[in-house]
Design a protein around this nucleic acid. Structure first.
Lengths: 185, 185
DNA sequence: AATTGACCATAAATCGTTTTTGGTCATTCG
DNA sequence: CGAATGACCAAAAACGATTTATGGTCAATT
């Protein structure tokens, strides 16, 4: 059955991309793990890139879901933003594929993978933006427009969590909350 | 006269490092430009690295000066912070050596140059911190401690100027001021 | 019609060779 | 005599020819 094979290919590819990265994953090995011939993969996907895109899209969907469940209809705006950021960062830190992409970008520095990471960031920003817009529709007033606010909040959060810890003790959760909250007004 | 030769070496090295970067600058060419023998350089400096350090230190001194002159004793805190950040970024954008280091880090990605850039950033952060502490001594109250505030302000400023512009129209000066100002309280 | 895997062009890794480079030091020079 | 030189050296980097690995195709097979 067609779907069965396609599923197997996706599963094998997801495993391999997560474990070895984009470059070190070969179509031959994906075929072998999926127990199909190499040619078969090309009946489902145009190229290695498009196969990868499918995996990435699936991962981004999971990320959106993780973020969605962190949001509570009745909670305060700033609490939701905070919870969502935690969920996103937690996901990023735990999901093997995104970790591997980060490593690969640093080690190999290929334009290809760099491009992928910008795309991931773009999608995360879009998601944050959509959350902000939903809150805005509920009547909350923000100082800046959603695009800028999403950008600000995300960049600051990353800076406080990742960059800061490269040279300092981790900041207490309350300090981070307070700073993020201050951006929202 | 000894100083004369040493000056020539420094001048030649500054030129070459700025123009070609660290790796592409050879001790032989520095010697040639400075019109000294290669061995002579080693009577003043222990290694290529230490020669480079001298140049970098000189550049950082200039940067501190540029920032210093941007600060007005009688101006408001947030105005001084803003003026100082503008001065630092302007300097970074105009000073050939720092530009070249940035390019080299991106292209070659060598640990050596990466290390240099972290050092530069560390120094800039220290400078901003010292400015904040001076203001604090004058009685201004800040919400966060100077190290954290310096970090926040600098990261946000860079994000708003450099990162934002990679995908958006530049932000109006007033917006940036407003955001930076909001961090200070 | 779906699937396969031998096949191909090209990209990437390998490896021996040559060139370049940072650094030294015996010799020269002022 | 001390400062300055540049031939010299070991090690690193650049080169280039050759081999290997890889993404993608397609005639043959199921």
């Amino acid at each position: 059955m067609i779907t069965d094979k396609k599923e197997r290919v996706i599963e094998a590819a997801a495993l391999s991309f997560s474990q070895f990265g984009f470059k070190a994953t070969t179509m031959a090995s994906v075929a072998k793990i999926a127990k199909v011939a190499k040619g078969t993969i090309y009946t489902f996907f145009d190229s290695k890139e498009s196969l990868f895109s499918t995996i990435l899209e699936r991962t981004m969907k999971q990320l959106r879901q993780a973020a969605d469940t962190a949001i509570q209809e009745e909670a305060a705006f700033h609490e939701n933003i905070q919870a969502m950021l935690d969920a996103i960062l937690g996901f990023r830190e735990n999901h093997q594929l995104l970790i591997k992409m980060g490593q690969e970008a640093k080690e190999l520095g290929t334009a290809e993978v760099l491009e992928i990471l910008t795309q991931v960031e773009r999608q995360i920003l879009d998601y944050i933006k959509s959350v902000i817009m939903k809150e805005k529709a509920k009547g909350i007033v923000t100082k800046h427009d959603p695009e800028l606010l999403a950008f600000l909040v995300y960049k600051i959060y990353i800076a406080l969590i990742s960059d800061w810890e490269r040279q300092h003790e981790p900041l207490p959760k309350e300090t981070i909350s307070e700073i993020i909250r201050a951006q929202i007004h």
